[in-house]
Amino acid sequence: MAIIKTDNLTFEYIRRDEEGNVEGITTAVDNVSFEIKRGEFVAILGHNGSGKSTLAKHLNAILFPTEGTVFVDGKDTSEDANLWDVRETVGMVFQNPDNQIIGQVVEEDVGFGPENLGVPTAEIWERMEESLKAVGMYEFRKKSPNRLSGGQKQRVSIAGVLAMHPQCIVLDEPTAMLDPIGRKEVIRAVRALNDVEKITAILITHYMDEIVHADKVIVMDKGKIAMAGTPREIFSQVDKLKSLSLDVPQVTMCAHKLREAGLNIPEGILTNDEFVKALQQCQ
């Protein structure tokens, strides 16, 4: 069974002018259906305003569909009785590293989720330890979050979700406000969770180099799914990506241009190693 399934998910909100009169209706997510299997690493791409963040917020019942349904672990998120189960099953990490840390000490922040779930004290400490170790932040457990770098703060946030033992973790542009080092740290931590702990990971981003290792990529545009497939399938369509205001890694772009110039090189080159191999075959 799929861990997450959306059925014709549509989300609309009403725009009002200063007097409160209805100006119009914006459809942020438009009739989207997809399935995510347990243990998958799925990337959701799209330019700003494409509806990808709105979609993400439906996956742990922060927003509810105007039409259609979202099922998490078979449960309809719109039903009140399922609310807390859904949020326990799917954890969420947000964009701004400062605005999601509640504790004044790293370890206390990680304990916040389990406390809410009513986990016994001794087990909270165990969960704190294993979660912080999983993201490589255990040695910082006594520090104030204000003294950490952006990448470290995001790793603490991931640990905070991890300590709730979710089956799936949704990361809503977790790297948008980080520097390259921080971005690498966070992506490495997410990949480790997916590889080692087998937690389903859904990464929302517009950095193309972060999705190379995903199992599946969904590209959003104007609230709809514009493309879906493996990273290779997606990166094979450079021109289409450009038309969706997205970018490809420089190596992919280079391979694409070489192909256009008449070289017999496959589309959808993702890494330098693949590129080198492809060129060796051209010689």
Partner: peptide, 17 residues
Amino acid sequence: GLGVPGITETMYKLKDA
């Protein structure tokens, strides 16, 4: 902790090969 542009890195990899 910096680096070179992605394409420069690619060229180094080609040269190594």
